[in-house]
Design a protein around this nucleic acid. Structure first.
Lengths: 139, 139
DNA sequence: ATCCTAGCTTAGACTGTGTCTAAACAAAGA
DNA sequence: TCTTTGTTTAGACACAGTCTAAGCTAGGAT
């Protein structure tokens, strides 16, 4: 049973068969898929599923606050089902591998008041880039 | 005289009239333009400038390490001429306004060793999101 | 059970952003 | 001047994502 589906249901959001397949596909992997990758995998379980439904559904899950939308490379967006845990991302510049990581404190604490320009801060995210163990040895 | 042009020249990179106009357009503003915005403004000074040259030139300046490419919203990339100063970004979720900010320490210090998964860290960037003073009062 | 309505899904057209290609052009050195 | 190398150009192309109009489905009202 998908935990994401449970969270989505709490919003009184109809869980149609299509939406269930999409949510389970997203959550079933430990990497963060693009919309096309979600479509590709979800279609294996529901061949008539359309591209538009995948895009619509991902956008709605983001709007509900249960999925994070990551725009990290300027190519395609990636979707992260762990919106309920504060975390950040570590990306390999060689192969694109992405891992969730946790910092020792809230990044907002490192932004002094005179650097806030009167903004109210809602959220902060840190992106770390480097080379994963595989890409260090075989560049 | 554009400081970015000076930095670019150090790479033995030919400063053609087109490249100069593009670099000066980028640096002349305190906001971070998209490629299309650079084109739009640069064309006012050099009407025959082509779109391809703007994209090529921006990509080359990024490859030289003198301009940062920001992929923050999944729509278009933005280009930041201040690649020589370590800084981060504060974005208004209302109007999209983006400001450069400085943290009190290196974000890499906040990622403990057991969260690095064997990666070598090259760079870190923090994105703060919230509402700017204008958008707080007039949402 | 049937009908109605609201919302969901679909295929495909469309848009925006960026890349590629082939040809014309410019500059520097022999 | 001629050649070589690198730059610029217009337009075709590719990819990611959105929109539209039509059909479909589920659930409530009768």
């Amino acid at each position: 049973m998908s935990d994401l589906v449970t969270r989505l249901r709490r919003h009184n959001w109809r869980i149609t068969p299509q939406r269930r397949v999409i949510a389970e596909t997203l959550e079933g992997s430990h990497v963060h898929f693009t919309a096309e990758q979600v479509l590709e995998r979800a279609v294996e379980r529901m061949p008539e599923l359309s591209r538009a439904t995948v895009y619509n559904t991902l956008n709605e899950m983001v709007a509900l606050g249960e999925v994070l939308e990551l725009a990290l490379d300027g190519r395609s967006k990636r979707y992260d089902p762990n919106a309920d845990h504060e975390h950040h991302h570590l990306i390999c510049e060689g192969c694109g591998l992405m891992k969730d990581v946790h910092t020792v404190a809230d990044p907002a604490d490192w932004l002094p008041g005179d650097e806030r320009h009167g903004f109210t801060l809602a959220r902060s995210s840190v992106t770390y880039r480097g080379l994963c163990p595989d890409c260090q040895t075989a560049p």
